[in-house]
Simulated scan of single mutants.
Amino acid sequence: MAYPTRPQEPTVWQKSKMGAMMGCGVGLTIGFIFGSYSIMRGGAGPRGFVATLSQYMLSSAATFSFFLAIGSVIRSDSVLPPHMEAARLQLLSPAIRSRADGAALIKARWEAEKRQH
């Protein structure tokens, strides 16, 4: 009998690369917007339009990609596999659960008490 396999979760390195690529795209866009505005407001300077705009875009892309890569790794860093994490969340005290989970738990307890009486 063949057991169904779960899709594999991306590795930490893959998550870091994905965060860096997203940050690079966002940084290039933000660098283009703010660089263009700065050039229109103050002029291109001695290096010229293209060199000044590319400096804005590349520095912004490097900054955004660095922080998004780190953020994606920190956010997805988990010691437990997903099925164990789900079990851990079920065993948390009711004070930590969400309002909907607490309401469902109370409703289930009331139903259990009704069946006992």
Rank of each mutant, 00 (worst) to 15 (best):
K15L: 12
P10V: 00
W110E: 15
V50D: 10
L89W: 08
D101F: 04
L68M: 15
I33L: 13
S59D: 10
L89M: 13
A44S: 15
G27C: 02
W13M: 04
E9L: 07
Q8K: 11
G45T: 08
P46S: 11
L68G: 03
W110K: 15
K107C: 07
G23H: 07
G19A: 02
T52H: 03
R97Y: 06
Y56R: 08
T63D: 05
T5G: 04
S59N: 15
P94K: 15
F66I: 03
T63V: 05
T29M: 13
R47Y: 12
G71W: 05
W13T: 08
P94V: 05
A86I: 06
K15A: 06
V79G: 11
S36K: 00
R47H: 09
E113W: 09
G27R: 03
D77C: 14
S59Q: 11
K17R: 14
K17P: 04
G71R: 01
W110Y: 12
G71D: 09
Q14A: 12
I74G: 04
G45K: 08
G23I: 04
S76T: 06
S76W: 02
W110F: 14
I30N: 13
M57K: 11
G42I: 07
S38R: 10
R47P: 02
V50C: 02
G25Q: 14
L89P: 00
T63H: 04
M22F: 13
R88L: 14
P81G: 03
G102K: 14
S16D: 07
A103L: 13
K15P: 00
G25N: 10
A2W: 09
L105R: 14
G102D: 11
R41S: 15
G23K: 00
I96K: 15
R88D: 09
Q8G: 06
G45H: 08
L89R: 15
R97K: 15
R47L: 14
M18Y: 09
P46E: 09
L80K: 03
T63C: 10
A100T: 12
M57H: 08
A86R: 14
C24Q: 02
I33P: 04
G42P: 00
T29K: 01
V26R: 00
A104C: 09
I74W: 13
L91I: 10
I39T: 02
A44M: 08
M40H: 10
T11C: 02
G19C: 02
L53K: 04
A112I: 00
I30Y: 07
A104D: 15
Y56L: 11
E113Q: 12
K15F: 00
M84T: 06
K107Y: 08
T11R: 02
F34P: 00
F64N: 11
P81W: 03
A69N: 00
G35K: 01
S60M: 07
S72K: 08
M40W: 06
G23W: 02
S93N: 13
Y56N: 14
A20K: 10
S38T: 14
R6K: 08
A86C: 03
I33G: 11
T5K: 04
Q14L: 04
P4K: 03
G45W: 07
S60N: 12
F64P: 01
A2N: 13
